[in-house]
Nucleic acid binder design. Structure first.
Ligand SMILES: [Mn+2]
Ligand SMILES: [Mn+2]
Ligand SMILES: [Zn+2]
Ligand SMILES: [Zn+2]
Lengths: 153, 153
DNA sequence: ATTTAAATAATAATGATTACAATTTAAGAA
DNA sequence: TTCTTAAATTGTAATCATTATTATTTAAAT
């Protein structure tokens, strides 16, 4: 995880939000996750430690974390959002069949991205860079019904 | 619009789909649009010419066009999808406050993108490149409540 | 220890999207 | 042209992730 628990607590304090066990548990899970979890995934996992946890709290907390810049929300094909603790410019490799997401950090991504952004005429407040494909597992299953393919040039 | 009506008809034929007046009217509107319309926008506009048009048909047709690669669906913050007839690698400049989307075609975008994609180890079936900001209109209104900002490096 | 504004939990409401079934129609065959 | 039929359209109901609401609990300041 990019931030340790003390840093997260400090961040909450400086943003003026209360530090609660629910928030810390959700942070601990989602900020260290590599699989771009959904709200339900976070709920299921954190509920094991906090059985009284409410789904509403998970929604609220993930939105809060997005608001303060610790998470990026990724709206997906199946309309179930996923949350990405990596908020820097990087590629999300996404399977168009099963929705699996993995990060890809090109070695000179920052440089190439700044090159692209250079001509915009303003300073972006964020970005989303997706590359779509069918993952190995889905390619084996063969039955890709809907392509949703888009031009590559 | 990238495609004229004859090309659209030919595309439907070669894909094995029927050519209907509803489909053609929806295509005519959405494939020439510059503002990344929603389903409702397409419905409202096309219904003026085809008063019997059903919203279900608009949903079905936009999905069909995405399936055959003539549109890209963009799932947005407000969970209302927008449709982009530009399926080539290009930047969508999106206002995080009002949701306005505009295209930005960097002059050497294709080159820079191929540079980025080079190291992936597979051939993508599509991509989505968003840059977020607050548009001029929203910046004037000042009251930006939720930032949802993400790291820029 | 008190106070209180904020957070949580439980649940209801929302609304874009999807599913469904009856009707219509595009398009190929006769 | 007329017939046939699978596909498309329509109108509406169902779905379900998300958001709103409200009573209760609690973090943290006094
Ligand atoms: Mn990512
Ligand atoms: Mn676009
Ligand atoms: Zn997959
Ligand atoms: Zn705006």
């Amino acid at each position: 995880m990019a931030m340790n628990i003390e840093q997260i607590i400090a961040k909450f304090h400086e943003e003026g939000f209360k530090v609660t066990p629910q928030r810390l548990a959700i942070c601990e899970y989602v900020l260290s996750s590599k699989d771009h979890p959904t709200t339900d995934m976070a709920y299921a996992e954190v509920k094991r430690k906090y059985p009284t946890l409410s789904l509403a709290t998970v929604y609220q907390t993930l939105h809060l974390l997005a608001d303060i810049g610790l998470l990026q929300e990724l709206e997906m094909d199946d309309r179930v959002s996923r949350y990405d603790p990596n908020t820097s410019p990087h590629i999300n490799i996404i399977c168009k069949n099963c929705g699996m997401v993995e990060d890809y950090d090109a070695k000179d991504m920052a440089k190439l991205w700044s090159e692209i952004v250079k001509g915009l005429g303003f300073e972006p407040i964020g970005q989303r860079i997706d590359v779509y494909r069918y993952c190995e597992k889905c390619l084996k299953k063969v039955k890709i019904k809907k392509t949703r393919g888009v031009s590559l040039v």
